[in-house]
Simulated scan of single mutants.
Amino acid sequence: MDLQTNDDQHFLIYKPFGMLSQFYSNSKQQCKKRFLGELYDFPDGVMPIGRLDEKSEGLLLLTTSGKMSHFVNSQNIEKEYFALVDGAISDSAVNKLRTGVTIGFEGKKYKTKPCKVFRIKDSLELPEAEQKIRDDRHGPTSWISITLKEGKFRQVRKMTSAVGYPTLRLVRVRIGNYILDKAMDSGAVRPLEKLTF
């Protein structure tokens, strides 16, 4: 089954903090929000593959192929996030995240699936945060990597809060084999010839 044609267009972007993962909204409450269209002159029919919430940043893929968008969203493609959490995260908390924690989703309790989680010990090469984040003078923080094959609404934030370490900054760095280039600044757009998973 062909998921894309030669006429389809695809993009890899670094979605900035504070921007919605959409091109417009009919909601009066969102009329002053920032939308993806301000980053680039995207073609008609382009859509984000999945979403990042307004307060999250990082890798977002866009395509004009509805079949490709559906495929990526339905096939449990790995998505990796770097999360800066409040506190020096414990081994116990990391293990709980790995095995699954209970979060709220659509008004019900939901147990997350097992996933890959580890502490990041090396310094990260990310653009400077666009939002004010408290610094280590107010207590320790930790960077962790979380790789999921599911994507419930605000899942990573809910997971880290469930083990007692709220997320202060969240950056998606990988979707399948697509990795956020360290040279990309927030708001950067890179056209792709095709998408392969």
Rank of each mutant, 00 (worst) to 15 (best):
F11C: 09
A93V: 10
L12S: 14
S123Y: 09
L3C: 08
P16W: 07
P140D: 10
K121P: 00
G176K: 03
D53L: 06
Y165G: 00
G164Q: 14
S186D: 11
D136Y: 13
N95T: 12
G18V: 11
K132F: 11
S161C: 07
F35A: 05
L124P: 03
K158R: 15
L192G: 04
N95L: 07
G187P: 07
G139S: 11
M1C: 07
S161Y: 05
E78N: 13
Q75D: 04
F23T: 07
G66I: 06
L180P: 00
K109R: 13
S123D: 13
D122I: 07
R174S: 06
V189C: 12
I49A: 04
L170H: 00
I120Y: 05
Y81D: 00
K158M: 03
A93H: 12
T141F: 11
I146M: 10
G187N: 12
L39V: 07
K96L: 11
Q155E: 15
N73K: 15
K158P: 10
E38L: 10
L148A: 01
P43S: 01
E106S: 08
D136W: 14
A83C: 11
L3Y: 14
A88I: 08
G100A: 08
Y165F: 15
P16Y: 05
L168M: 13
K28V: 10
E193A: 12
D181N: 15
Y178C: 07
M19P: 00
